[in-house]
């Protein structure tokens, strides 16, 4: 088990390798389809994303009477939808980590290598376990996209993920697909 603590940096994530089980402590910014499209269209992000981690997640959130937000469910959403945009966001805004599920493609993998970023896979469907790791909601941006699509700034502690694409050009998704293909040939 490895730990990745805030503040994050390209150097720190370059230390990580495919297959590493990592507990992240620090800040995460959620961002999914609307946010990626917005950035791709040339709009500046409302927060500085340099050396930050983006989480592909549309959280279920509740506001209490005092106006304080809590996150009640926060599992990852499918990342591949952001494949056309992710490399640009890595390049232009200097994010050093992407959390999601299902993995991403070659463009993202190349950008990870070039700029120092890794793809972390969270356990899909583990909405409750992951929500428990969120200690506070520190900000809400682009609320006009609707709450699940907005950018939520979250503080997390020991947020459990697995590195499935590292900053050295390796992808666990590619490896597992290739090895299972070999086995598939023998059983078909």
């Amino acid at each position: 088990m490895k730990k990745l603590n805030y503040p994050f940096s390209p150097e720190a994530v370059r230390e990580l390798k495919v297959g590493d089980m990592v507990l992240i402590t620090g800040k995460l910014f959620t961002g999914r389809d609307a946010v990626h499209k917005y950035l791709h269209d040339g709009n500046k992000p409302p927060v500085n994303l340099k050396n930050q981690i983006i989480y592909h997640c549309g959280p279920v959130t509740l506001k209490d009477k005092k106006g304080k937000w809590t996150v009640t469910a926060a599992g990852p959403t499918t990342s591949i939808r952001e494949e056309p945009y992710q490399w640009e966001v890595i390049k232009d805004y200097g994010i050093v980590g992407v959390i999601g599920k299902g993995g991403m493609g070659q463009k993202t993998l190349d950008a990870c290598k070039e700029y120092g970023c890794v793809y972390f896979h969270a356990v899909g469907g583990a909405a409750q376990v992951l929500a428990e790791k969120i200690k506070s909601v520190d900000g809400l941006y682009l609320e006009e996209f609707g709450l699940p699509e907005a950018i939520w700034e979250l503080s997390v502690e020991d947020f459990p993920v697995v590195v499935t694409m590292d900053a050295h050009g390796n992808s666990l998704h590619k490896d597992v697909e290739a090895s299972s293909k070999e086995i598939l040939k023998t059983v078909l």
Partner: peptide, 24 residues
């Protein structure tokens, strides 16, 4: 093993909190 552990914890936690297992 790590993923299965998280899945099992999630099952326990959802039941205990009476909250959806997955947000979808």
């Amino acid at each position: 093993d790590y993923a299965m552990g998280i899945i099992k914890n999630n099952i326990d936690l959802a039941k205990f909190k009476s909250q959806p297992l997955c947000q979808d």
